[in-house]
Simulated assay, not measured.
Amino acid sequence: MPQTVKGVIARSKDADVEVVDIVVPDPGPGEAVVKVHTCGVCHTDLHYKQGGINDEFPFLLGHEAAGVVEAVGEGVTEVAPGDFVILNWRAVCGQCRACQKGKPWYCFATHNAKQKMTLTDGTELSPALGIGAFIEKTLVAAGQCTKVDPEADAAAVGLLGCGVMAGFGAAVNTGGVGMGDSVAVIGCGGVGNAAIAGAQLAGATTIVAVDIDDEKLDAARRFGATHTVNSGKTDPVEAIKEATGGFGADVVVEAVGRPETYEQAFYARDLAGTVVLVGVPTPDKQVTLPMIEIFGRGGALKSSWYGDCLPSRDFPMLVDLYRQGRFDLDAFVTEKIGLGDIEKAFEKMERGEVLRSVVVL
């Protein structure tokens, strides 16, 4: 029987979010219903609310979630009722050309649940990133569920579902940070600080954090930054070079998504260094660089999709590191809130007052 539960929607562009009744169907073939325990408030949800992703309103917001599988549909073997899972928005197909080449983190045919959750009047909802987890129970593709250690704190490990994984993976998976490397991270929100934590865990010896907010830079030090630069007061390119013996960093992670910060990242890397773009730009943003500089510096200019992660591989590993006290996911949780507090959480996010507000259901 379909269930009616409480969830949070954005009904129209820039309208305040609403807590409403939502109908969740029974899982069909390849689908699962998950009882949501926690869901982080991510900047992507705000983009949806503001119409910055697309105009397929109303949106069921939320995607950075952990919970317990309640029911599964026909043919599901990945998970079973009772499993504690983190939700992901890139369920790999296993069949496309990327998957067949052994690079499933680039899967070109990721999928979501085929059925739609609806309002009580039958209006279909568009779930954020194919998940929609600001809700008591959600319907997803079974491949969007990754089973992890049930003893882990849901509020912390649920953040691997988006921002923390994106930042950690940008440094470790995409950037390939290794022992003794120098790293710079431009933008020290949740994603940037996760990149810093990942670089430290991977063995980087010099980690330069760049932001315009001194409080965020203080937080970056707690995550492992060895140097901090307020780019509103100091030229970040020169400061990064000074911290790396005049050469520039081996890997520079751009976690802002703006042309000016990308240009800083480009010029702040060492010869043959790597730039990783993980900050999400809006469609109107463009960057112009001299081709001779691109040619003459060598190295690599990369973008990072979801930290180039493979959830089935990376989520359990990172949860284990968290449980061992080696990866401090708790430090990303600024506050725990209820479903009715999400609009205020968006306001705090825009003011830069939180790394993550986490909804606890």
Rank of each mutant, 00 (worst) to 15 (best):
G296T: 10
C309E: 08
Q286L: 12
A166E: 05
H47G: 02
E136K: 05
V24T: 10
G40L: 03
I22V: 15
L329F: 10
A171W: 04
A199I: 08
F247S: 07
L217A: 08
T282R: 14
I86D: 01
A141D: 05
G122A: 10
T4G: 06
I294R: 06
D149F: 12
W305Q: 12
V183C: 08
C162V: 06
S126I: 02
G73V: 09
Y48W: 10
V41P: 00
V191Q: 01
D26T: 14
M291W: 09
A113R: 00
R326D: 12
V276Y: 08
A142Y: 07
K116L: 01
T174V: 09
T146H: 04
I131N: 02
R258W: 00
E263L: 14
T205E: 14
V20N: 07
A133G: 12
A243Q: 07
G245Y: 10
G178R: 14
T261Q: 06
E353N: 04
C107H: 09
D218Q: 14
K233V: 13
E254R: 05
V76M: 07
L125G: 02
L277H: 05
T146L: 03
C39T: 11
G224H: 04
V359K: 01
D149T: 10
R222T: 14
A331L: 09
E78D: 12
Y106N: 13
A202P: 07
E350N: 12
E343A: 13
H47F: 13
L159S: 07
T206P: 05
K101C: 02
L46M: 08
I240P: 00
L301H: 12
A142H: 08
C145N: 08
E31Y: 03
L361G: 00
L318W: 06
L289N: 06
Q324F: 03
Y262D: 00
G246H: 11
D218A: 15
G198I: 09
D250K: 11
K114Q: 13
V276K: 05
V177F: 10
L301I: 15
L310Q: 12
V34S: 01
G248P: 04
R269V: 13
A155S: 15
N54A: 14
I292T: 13
D270E: 13
C309G: 11
K336T: 15
E215D: 14
A194T: 08
V229E: 04
K103N: 11
V251E: 05
A133V: 06
I342F: 02
A197S: 14
P104G: 11
K302V: 05
Q200S: 11
W89D: 02
K35N: 10
E335V: 11
F223P: 01
M349D: 00
G40H: 02
V359S: 02
F295M: 14
N112M: 11
A71Y: 02
E347L: 04
M349K: 00
P236S: 06
E238M: 12
A202N: 08
G167C: 05
A133H: 04
G67Q: 06
P316M: 06
R269Y: 07
D16A: 15
E74H: 09
G299E: 09
